[in-house]
């Protein structure tokens, strides 16, 4: 038993203390958080834009078509581009997108983290767009009609009435999407970015002991995800409370 403890302590020292290897994990964790956070921000921006185009076209496209003109053609084209984007992004694996971004599109770039943020942001944007669009569609059309019947234009109706209700519906789903994104950034190591997962793997390569670094990495992800999940739970309960 004593040997076992001594062994564990030695392993711990070897993997984390010697050569200050714990700093690798800390650095990696920081990179992971940076990628996840900024990709989230980018994802929301793209998602809002796409969802706005798609749902506006769904709601008003028919009546615009009747009126004709160049505007509706541009609008229709934008809608089709959005659909193509959604199909491509949701139809291919994240790792492949990341590899293409890093080795083809941003071939000459040396800023791996930035490329990762853009890749993950573009990927996340597709899912966020569909979450938002689903949220807008699930708000009762009567709410929209009531807004219009009072004299609000399309944008006012969306801003004052539909979007606040949409947010309530999608907020928990949206938070879960970001938890998924955080875990998904673990593939960033594929293009040589030293994120949390890569840091653990580097330690393993240096010390030839897999157990300690990999379990440590897993635990860090787990703790962060559990904390975020708890926060989402609290948020959800709050929302339900204001839902009279």
């Amino acid at each position: 038993m004593k040997d076992w403890f001594a062994d564990i302590a030695a392993q711990f020292k070897l993997n984390f203390i010697d050569g200050n290897r714990w700093q690798w994990l800390a650095e990696g964790f920081k990179t992971t958080l940076i990628i996840a956070f900024f990709a989230t921000v980018l994802g929301i921006c793209i998602g809002v834009l796409i969802a706005t185009i798609r749902s506006t076209y769904d709601k008003t496209g028919e009546s615009l078509k009747k009126r004709g003109g160049a505007g509706v053609k541009i609008f229709g084209l934008a809608d089709r581009i959005c659909k193509l984007y959604l199909t491509v992004i949701r139809g291919t694996p994240m790792v492949v997108q990341l590899l293409i971004m890093y080795f083809i599109i941003f071939k000459s770039s040396t800023r791996g983290t930035l490329v990762a943020i853009i890749s993950f942001g573009i990927n996340s944007g597709a899912y966020v767009a569909e979450i938002f669009r689903g949220g807008i569609m699930s708000v009762d059309n009567g709410q929209f009609e009531a807004g219009r019947s009072l004299g609000f234009n399309y944008i006012q109706t969306m801003v004052y009435i539909v979007i606040p209700q949409m947010f309530k519906i999608v907020l928990p789903t949206l938070c879960n999407e970001f938890i998924v994104l955080l875990k998904e950034t673990s593939v960033a190591g594929y293009v040589g970015i030293r994120d949390l997962t890569k840091a653990g793997d580097l330690i393993r390569g240096r010390t030839f002991s897999a157990f300690m670094p990999l379990i440590a990495v897993a635990l860090i992800y787990l703790v962060v995800v559990v904390i975020l999940t708890k926060l989402v739970g609290i948020l959800e309960r709050r929302l339900r409370k204001s839902d009279h």
């Binding site: 009762d140 009567g142 009531a146 807004g147 019947s149 009072l150 209700q165």
Partner: peptide
């Protein structure tokens, strides 16, 4: 049309009060 709608009040079968307000 938005100006016209300001002058035409409408009451719906399903009430359609704004649920968030």
């Amino acid at each position: 049309v938005n100006l016209a709608r300001q002058k035409i009040g409408m009451v719906f079968q399903q009430f359609n009060l704004f649920a968030n307000l």
